[in-house]
């Protein structure tokens, strides 16, 4: 069975840390960083990148369009 692996890239400086991506992620790949970005927001980042399946849920709900998603079959 072909497995799917994904990866996300977050535009950290534009992230406002709203957390909508975190709660929608089915694999708990994303978390808010302990550090803040230039605007003072705890930005989203792939805390568990190996869990990502590239489902695009996070990018779909991101109000600021800061998430880019890649996916490949392995």
């Amino acid at each position: 069975m072909a497995k799917v692996k994904g990866s996300i890239v977050v535009d950290i400086e534009k992230c406002k840390g709203c957390e909508l991506c975190v709660v929608t992620c089915p694999t708990k790949t994303i978390a808010l960083a302990a550090e803040v970005n230039g605007k003072g927001y705890h930005y989203a980042y792939p805390a568990n990148p190996e869990l990502c399946i590239g489902c695009t849920n996070c990018a779909t709900v991101c109000p600021d369009g800061v998430i880019t998603v890649y996916r490949m079959k392995i």
Partner: peptide, 20 residues
């Protein structure tokens, strides 16, 4: 291993979502 794997994934041909 993970980091290398990610590099393989983040390629234009694997792009599934970017903002308009």
């Amino acid at each position: 291993k993970t980091a290398e794997g990610l590099k393989d994934i983040i390629k234009p041909e694997n792009l599934v979502y970017r903002k308009s």
